[in-house]
Every structure is written in C-alpha cells, then in structure tokens.
Simulated scan of single mutants.
Amino acid sequence: MKKYFENYLRNRCSGKDFESFIELFVDKKNQPVLEQQMKENWEETSQGGATPDLSSTLHKIHFEINSQEKSTGKSPYFLTYLTRIAAILLLPLAVAFFFQWQKSGQPDEMLQTVSTPLASKTSFVLPDGSKVWLNSGSSIRFPQEFDGDERLVELTGEAYFDVQKSEQPFRVKTAHFTVDVLGTAFNVLAYDNEIPAVTLERGKVTLHTKSKKQATLLPGQQAVVDTIGHEIALTEVETKLFSSWIDNQLILKDEPLGEVVARLERWYNIEINVIDQSLMEKRMTASIEFESIREVMELMELTLSIHYEYDKDQRKLNISKANN
C-alpha cells in the first residue's frame, strides 16, 4: 500500500500499478492504513496547521466506487464516473484538501486556506478550538493563530461552525454579509450562485450586511439575505434541514427542483440540466445519505414524473418531462 501510495503522489504509477492501488483502496480493511499514509504525507509536506478529518470522505469514496462497480441497467456513464472518482477525487482530494499557505499584508502573519472540491466535505478544528465542517465546493481562510482583537475567518460556500466561547469575538466574513458571535453553533450558506442564509442552532449571532442592515438571530431562526437590496428576512425553520449534511445526510423537504438540482450537483459533482423549465415548479421531499446518483434519479422519476438521461458527449444529466 505504501509503495503504491508514494508512487501515485510522485506521478510514477503505471496503468497496472494504478489499477492495483484502486483494488487495495476499495478493500475496507485497508482504510486505516490509507488514512495513516494520508496524514503522514500531510505532516511531511505542510507547514503546520489543522489536519483534516478524512474518515467521512473515505467513507463517501468507498461507497461511490463500490456502488458504481455494481450498477447495471440504463446508466452507462457510471464506469466513466468511477474512473473520474479514482483519478480526480481519490487522492488529491483526501491527501491535501487543497490546503494552501500564503503571506498576508503583515509579513509575519500566516493565513491558512482549506478548500473542498465538489462531492466532498471535511471537518477540522480552528486554532481557538472551534470546530468547522466545510461542505463541498467551499473554501475558508483563517490565520494560524487568533492573536488580534477578533477571530476572523473568511468563507465562500457553506460551513457549519461550533464556536468555542471566548471574550475575543468570532467573525465569519462572506461576500454579502458578516456574522458576529461569541460562542454558538450555526450554519452559513454563502455560495456565489445561491441566495445566502444563516441558520442558528444554539446561542445567538448578529448578521451585518454591506448596507449596514443587521439582524440578531435566536435558536431556530434563519436569516436570508437579499444580495441586491441587502435586506434581511428572518423566519423560523427546522435547523436540522440545513445542517444534516455534516452527518452525511442531504435532507430535502418540499424543495423546488431548481434548489434540489443545485444541491445534487455539489453532492455528486455532476452537471444536471433541466430541459423543460416548467419542471422547476415541482417540489421534492427526500432523505439522501449514501445513495448513488442513479438511485436518486430513479426516485425522482417515480415521485416527480420526470425522465432523465445521461449525455455522455457533454458529460451531464438531462431532466425532461416523463412520457406518459
């Protein structure tokens, strides 16, 4: 295992070696050894900082590979999808999680960036002991040590924070708003192409927009931010619907198809095109854990009266009206 692992990292794998490595990887009894190799590589190549929790990602990759190998029927793209997982997602994702170091404006201050590709997520502990879960297609930047007047992190995408209490304020900065807290647990949704929102599970947070509008959230409340007028709308919600992803669950409750598609694209790292826009009015309720995309699409065919096909030339799923 170690030999194959090192050869892969150094781009010295032959086709046969790579196939052998994949066979070793999908054997679950080798997972502890692989995790240890990943962590050792991180410690050897990094300049310090948090080590990501790789267990949920390994679980996800194992499930996807095993399910795609076993799949049959009308989904011929799954073998291609398996190859893509192995070649693109497998080790570059799990080994590095795109940890990056860069100098800030102050020469002695180091900033650390953690990013997660699509179809993956990770969790880690910040320098102050606060825990962060980072969802797919997201990025967060923070200093090596919180030694100033505030604990500032910058987020693009989605993250769940369980903040360690301190007199030093904790602040999450996004493109459209900033969240100020002292000690609490909350979810921040701030993808570039989605309506941003903050959902509070416990404690209290204050949200500030660029136009100086602000709102204070209590447990069970969600703040949705208008990115044009920067207005804030507060509603009562089921917080579990917005934080279940940290437990490897995607819970959909009467969600419009447009939002469902956006979440599935990130969850499975696949492009989905809705051909008939009238379908956007349909709504879906489901709980997804480790089901394959094929299983999810077949469920949608049954419950939403749609039809899906995979376009192998453009590498995307197309959704259209079902032929009755």
Score class of each variant (00 low, 15 high):
residue 125 V to N: 11
residue 85 I to Y: 08
residue 104 S to C: 04
residue 109 E to F: 04
residue 125 V to C: 07
residue 158 E to I: 02
residue 102 Q to F: 09
residue 148 G to H: 10
residue 136 S to D: 00
residue 168 Q to I: 06
residue 148 G to Q: 14
residue 158 E to M: 07
residue 164 Q to A: 14
residue 106 Q to Y: 13
residue 131 K to G: 01
residue 136 S to I: 00
residue 144 Q to A: 07
residue 150 E to D: 08
residue 120 S to W: 04
residue 157 G to C: 03
residue 95 V to P: 02
residue 95 V to S: 12
residue 153 V to S: 04
residue 103 K to F: 00
residue 133 W to N: 11
residue 163 V to G: 03
residue 145 E to C: 02
residue 101 W to S: 05
residue 81 Y to E: 11
residue 108 D to F: 15
residue 115 S to F: 02
residue 118 L to G: 04
residue 123 S to N: 15
residue 77 Y to Q: 10
residue 114 V to S: 04
residue 103 K to L: 11
residue 133 W to Q: 09
residue 105 G to M: 00
residue 91 L to I: 08
residue 78 F to V: 13
residue 155 L to D: 02
residue 137 G to E: 00
residue 133 W to V: 07
residue 150 E to I: 13
residue 148 G to M: 04
residue 139 S to Y: 01
residue 130 S to F: 01
residue 106 Q to M: 11
residue 135 N to P: 03
residue 129 G to R: 08
residue 117 P to F: 09
residue 141 R to E: 12
residue 105 G to A: 08
residue 127 P to R: 01
residue 123 S to D: 15
residue 125 V to Y: 12
residue 113 T to K: 12
residue 163 V to F: 09
residue 134 L to W: 10
residue 162 D to F: 06
residue 158 E to F: 00
residue 140 I to D: 10
residue 110 M to G: 03
residue 157 G to Q: 04
residue 111 L to D: 05
residue 115 S to M: 08
residue 79 L to S: 12
residue 89 L to A: 11
residue 103 K to E: 12
residue 135 N to A: 07
residue 97 F to M: 09
residue 118 L to Q: 10
residue 124 F to I: 08
residue 94 A to C: 13
residue 88 I to Q: 15
residue 146 F to V: 04
residue 109 E to L: 14
residue 106 Q to T: 15
residue 85 I to A: 08
residue 99 F to M: 13
residue 95 V to R: 14
